[in-house]
Amino acid sequence: MAVNPETAHRTVGAANPPQLRAIRLRRQRIFKAIVLTLTLLFLFIPLASMLLFTVRHPLSGQWSLAPWQAIFTGNGESLGADLTVLWEGLGSSLLLCVVTVVIMLVLMVPTMVIVHIRSRRLERAIEWVATLPLTIPAIVLVVGLGPIYRWLSADVFSTDPVWLCFAYVVLVMPFAFRSIAVGLNSIDVKTLVEASRSLGASWPRVFFRVIIPNLWQSILSASFISIAVVLGEYTVASLLGRMNLQVALYQLGQSNSQVSTAMSLLALMFGVILLVALDLISTAMRTSKEGK
């Protein structure tokens, strides 16, 4: 590339002796070990501290599994903690996950499939709209959503937290769009549709029997990332005054930080499982595509 031509002429064809290369490789290995160890330590120390924090009472210094027992038995009386708020939050977050994923799929999948086949211009418009929430911070969206939700809860729906799903679909849209777009680009949708249409299949049949089975991996990964986002959402719920898992964790943290830290760790573990599954799915997608 931009190597000085004079030096290049002088030493052309004379590669570095193998000893030098070996030294470089060893240096690289040391560098790699140091950087990765430090980075991973920084990432793991807070997680390990969370675990220790839940089993050792910070004031008395006694070790006990009481916070975990309280979570798994659902009874926080031994710690003097009222866990009803936690179950309420967890329940509404899980329900929100389901409703958000369903709305997201119904809204995005048919639309993205049809514009992928028919209109490049509309597809770009949809990409632009769907990734727009990345540019509009959630805290800004809440300012605009406030009046809408005030009207919705007074005149149309109730103040039940499940109606947060409308805002959450917008929040998960960029991630879901990317997952589905990857799937659409990896298969030849156009040929599949034309082939099945020319064989006499109706549109719904094409959609449910041909396209969905070919896209299930990206549909699954779009759903997983949406679940991960919804479970971790705090901004919208807390500012609109609705209860969800994170709001409950925050409230519980004021009175019993051990239980809420334990619950945070569980939620994090669940996220790890979801995203590792996502990684496995995308690896499977890549290998199946290469295998074709």
Partner: peptide
């Protein structure tokens, strides 16, 4: 990819538990 999403209340708890 998990930790990049790990913001908010849970992250605050992690650092309160640490330091």
């Amino acid at each position: 990819s998990v930790l990049a999403q790990f913001g908010g209340v849970m992250l605050a708890f992690a650092f309160i538990a640490t330091i």
